[in-house]
């Protein structure tokens, strides 16, 4: 298949594209997914045997808003984990680290959200846990990291309420597939559909709770990726000088949501970023050679420069 993106296609090929799109959706037109939520609001200081990080007590409420609203739309609440014994064990793959249990936790869900402090660690995202497991205080995912490999069990949609979870330089770093490394299992196979996160820092507060329920709601009417990037987008809203709350004088920074899809063909990856919804789930990708991101070029968040993948 040609990989040129700028061909003007004849009409009959356009209709074939529409028909092939529809055939993908026939494979799974019924919805009713299992959803899971993992949130840390109460971090544990290293002096108390934990992994550190300052508290954000409203964070679990933000994730709850998504989780609860998914149930309103008919999905099954399959597990809500807040604070407690949050270690990488729930997220890592046993092929990578012995004793890992993602097949009982993260990858057992169809859609899952993880909320925790996140950092840019070289070529991938790194999420702070509450306690260490296998000498790991951080969940490393994507790039050259080995902790997370999802899509071999069940997970289709992974949402990261976490800083630096979709930094532009980690989407496709040199030498590896970036975020897509975490969305497949090289040993067992399988591919997840979508990763959503943030370029740079995101913020915690009760004013953001509605964004999460709105995201869940809208992702049944419009694409999940599109719902993520519109509902979580807060331009010129943070770090503003007191006289510039609307960003008119350039003193503010943005909150920059990003979505990433993957597929074995351009069409499958496109369907994932543009059309896939919680009630319109496509068949699993069978490869990840093609991918799309959706976001705002130039979006300038704290802890990052303007989004420019």
């Amino acid at each position: 298949m040609s990989t040129s993106f700028n061909l003007v296609r004849p009409t009959h090929i356009r209709w074939l594209a529409i028909l092939s799109t529809l055939s993908f959706t026939l494979a799974n037109s019924a919805y009713g997914m299992e959803v899971k939520a993992f949130a840390i609001g109460d971090f544990v200081p290293s002096s108390s045997g934990g992994c550190g990080g300052s508290d954000r007590t409203t964070w679990p409420s933000m994730v709850d808003a998504w989780y609860d609203h998914m149930a309103v739309h008919g999905h099954t609440k399959d597990g809500q984990y807040t604070d407690g014994n949050m270690t990488i064990q729930r997220f890592c793959d046993p092929d990578s680290i012995g004793g890992c249990l993602d097949h009982l936790y993260l990858d057992e869900a169809d859609a899952a959200m993880i909320a925790t402090h996140g950092a840019d660690s070289g070529d991938h995202w790194q999420g702070t846990m509450r306690y260490s497991y296998a000498n790991n205080c951080a969940l490393d995912a994507g790039g050259n990291a080995i902790d997370m490999n999802v899509g071999d069990v069940d997970l289709e949609f992974l949402h990261l309420s976490s800083c630096n979870s979709a930094d532009d330089d980690n989407l496709n770093p040199a030498g590896n597939l970036g975020v897509r490394e975490a969305l497949t299992d090289p040993v067992d196979g399988g591919y997840a559909h979508l990763w959503t996160g943030f370029h740079g820092v995101m913020y915690i507060g009760s004013g953001y709770i509605s964004d999460y329920s709105d995201f869940a709601h809208d992702a049944h009417s419009v694409g999940i990726a599109y719902s993520w990037v519109t509902n979580h987008y807060r331009p010129d809203s943070v770090d503003c000088d007191w006289y510039d709350p609307f960003g008119w004088f350039g003193t503010c920074q943005d909150i920059c949501p990003v979505a990433v899809s993957q597929g074995q063909t351009n069409a499958r990856a496109w369907n994932g970023i543009q059309y896939e919804r919680y009630n319109n789930v496509y068949s699993d990708p069978t490869g990840n050679n093609y991918w799309y991101w959706m976001g705002y070029l130039g979006c300038d968040s704290v802890n990052e420069t303007g989004f420019n993948p």
């Binding site: 971090f43 550190g52 990080g53 402090h117 840019d120 913020y203 915690i204 943070v238 770090d239």
Partner: peptide
């Protein structure tokens, strides 16, 4: 940046 990154309002 370490384990602590999210802002708050």
């Amino acid at each position: 940046s370490g384990p602590d990154t999210a802002g708050f309002a």
